[in-house]
């Protein structure tokens, strides 16, 4: 292959990757009602639930509103990231996946692109909400905000990878719905996103540190509060992202080679 041909091929692959990511992002524009309802849910949780609960919670030195506001951003990101699994499942059901897999992209490249597309969609969606929380909490250090933003993006990438893996490993629609709903429930409720580990019941507090949502929320709170960052927790989050992407790619290889409908 000549250098010119290689250049042309790389250009095509790059174009395809961008097109796939743009396709995932277009879903945001196509679903304004869903954006409205999730945005409203976020605002009600912050300005009604968190405000009123912070009047009830009486733990010295603990600011429930700040804690919950940051957690709500992470919970929203996680929920949106889980939606990519539904898209992939629908594509597999309608046969669109067969076409997508005929594109001149490696399976790994395809999974990575879908995960990044889903994560970008989540992060774009949550940016105004993140800005609202940063504004009301007075987080103004750009480096802290950017670092936290990057971690939220990582979490979204990992969860998107997980939802793609689930979408490709379960064929029955009801079972798929239930599995994804359960995973979302466990990832969020058994995490430190909405409440601190010390107040959780024993069983939940034992598993909470292993939730990637906990890992992200702990590190994000440390960064925004100018505290120290636990590197092992960050490594745990990175390990989650890498393993979910690898699992997603493996699922594509296992399930798709020879045809999904076989």
């Amino acid at each position: 292959m000549t250098a010119d041909e290689r250049f042309q091929q790389n250009k095509t692959v790059r174009g395809l990757l961008i097109a796939l990511i743009a396709r995932d992002l277009r879903v945001l524009v196509k679903t304004p009602w869903i954006i409205f309802s999730r945005g409203l849910a976020f605002l009600v949780q912050i300005f009604v639930f968190a405000v009123l609960m912070s009047r009830l919670v009486n733990v010295p030195g603990f600011d429930f509103f700040t804690y919950y506001a940051i957690g709500t951003v992470l919970v929203t990101v996680a929920s949106i990231a889980f939606l990519t699994g539904y898209d992939v499942y629908e594509e597999a059901e309608t046969g669109m996946l067969d076409y997508l897999l005929s594109l001149p992209l490696s399976r790994r490249g395809y999974v990575l692109t879908r995960a990044v597309g889903g994560a970008l969609r989540s992060i774009i969606y949550v940016t105004p909400l993140y800005a609202i929380v940063a504004f009301i909490e007075g987080f103004s250090n750009l480096l802290d905000l950017a670092g936290s933003y990057l971690l939220i993006f990582l979490l979204a990438t990992g969860i998107t990878g997980l939802s793609i893996t689930v979408a490709l490993s379960i064929r029955d629609e009801d079972r798929f719905d239930v599995t994804l709903a359960l995973l979302e429930l466990f990832f969020i409720r058994f995490s430190t996103a909405l409440y601190p580990q010390t107040f959780m019941p024993l069983a939940a507090s034992v598993v909470a540190p292993f939730s990637p949502v906990s890992m992200t929320s702990d590190v994000v709170r440390s960064i925004l509060g100018h505290g120290t960052v636990d590197l092992t927790v960050m490594l745990g989050l990175v390990a989650f992202v890498v393993s979910m992407l690898a699992l997603g790619a493996a699922m594509y290889l296992r399930k798709i080679e020879g045809g999904y409908f076989d």
């Binding site: 919670v57 009486n58 429930f64 359960l182 429930l185 409720r189 058994f190 409440y195 107040f199 019941p201």
Partner: peptide
């Protein structure tokens, strides 16, 4: 089953946790 699990988690995880803080 999922609805019951949701109820159980609502009550015995989130509910218990909030009650520890109030």
């Amino acid at each position: 089953v999922l609805m019951f699990m949701n109820f159980a988690i609502d009550l015995f995880v989130s509910g218990v946790t909030f009650s520890q803080m109030i």
